[in-house]
């Protein structure tokens, strides 16, 4: 387990040895691609409790589960307090459950790049299911949707942010909606509002179901998992699964390339004073960038 934990650290750090890690994973004969489910919501919807309930269900079905929980880092200090484990104490000491808290680090594409690599690694370590959990503030929920096979958006009757979430364009990324805390007032209203919104949306081949849950009592969790499985088989049947995974690999490669290029450029500017001087004098970033990418190589 410590090897896995350490490897994830290397990934988070964008350590060059990721390349070797990738090769090792590729050569790993038992490596499988785990199913990836993303959970996102505004704070205070009981999402961690719901994830905990889903993990409980999966463990009953003898599946191993890894949870990657992300929280934003402070943009000022880089520090973070990651508190998602608190809700998952039930699974402490279960060797088939791996929980890792990740700071989002605040750099562009950071979360999705790191989690994609981590998911492959978790597959190599034999995990059947991967759950990505993130607080939907800012970019992170879009990044989750870009990585997960199925994205679950969690809403609640209280707090009044359900409507706000929908306005923020969450509708497009949700494959399954959960209305958690279905035991409190206002639950029917949220479901009705959501249904109206979905009916107004353009017709697609997959219509996101709305699942009411009471995560604290494990209610509705089975229905939720069935809905997630139904979405998976829809992806398979329509050929979307293959399409998605290919597109993801292409996107990921492009992102890594961008990252490499960015770093190469920074280094060039750092190491070549004449180049930097010219850039500062002429004010021509586009031309300078092109020149660096054309003429310089790593190593």
């Amino acid at each position: 387990m410590r090897a896995l934990a350490r490897a994830i650290t290397l990934i988070e750090r964008r350590d060059p040895s990721i390349r070797d890690l990738e090769d090792a994973v590729r050569d790993h004969t038992d490596a499988q691609v785990p199913d990836v489910t993303g959970f996102t919501s505004a704070p205070g919807t009981g999402k961690s409790t719901l994830v905990d309930a889903v993990v409980t269900l999966l463990r009953k079905r003898s599946q191993s589960v890894a949870v990657l929980a992300t929280d934003p880092n402070s943009p000022f200090t880089g520090g973070a307090i990651l508190g998602d484990r608190i809700r998952m104490q039930r699974h402490a000491l279960d060797p088939k459950v791996f929980i890792r808290s990740m700071g989002a680090r605040g750099h562009l594409g950071g979360l999705s790049l790191a989690s994609r690599e981590a998911i492959r690694l978790l597959g190599a370590f034999g995990f059947d299911q991967v759950i990505l959990e993130t607080v939907g503030v800012g970019q992170s929920e879009l990044e989750v949707a870009a990585v997960a096979d199925t994205t679950v958006v969690v809403l609640t009757p209280n707090l009044g942010d359900s409507v706000q979430m929908i306005k923020a364009g969450i509708l497009e990324i949700a494959d399954v909606f959960v209305v958690n805390k279905a035991d409190i007032d206002g639950h029917g209203r949220v479901v009705a509002e959501l249904r109206t919104m979905l009916n107004m949306a353009p017709k697609t081949s997959w219509k996101p179901p709305i699942i009411p849950t009471v995560a604290t009592r494990q209610e509705g969790v089975q229905q939720l998992w069935e809905a997630i499985l139904a979405h998976r088989s829809h992806l398979e049947k329509t050929g979307k699964a293959k399409e998605l995974s290919e597109r993801r690999l292409r996107d990921e490669t492009a992102e890594v390339a961008a990252e490499l290029a960015r770093e190469r450029t920074r280094r060039a500017l750092r190491e070549d004073p004449t180049l930097t001087e010219r850039l500062l004098k002429d004010g021509t970033p586009y031309r300078t960038a092109e020149e660096i990418l054309r003429t310089r190589t790593d190593n």
Binding site: T49, D84, I86, Q89
Partner: peptide, 10 residues
């Protein structure tokens, strides 16, 4: 009754 886990607030 089951047991309760706190809401994560730091």
């Amino acid at each position: 009754f089951g047991t309760y886990t706190e809401t994560a607030v730091v």
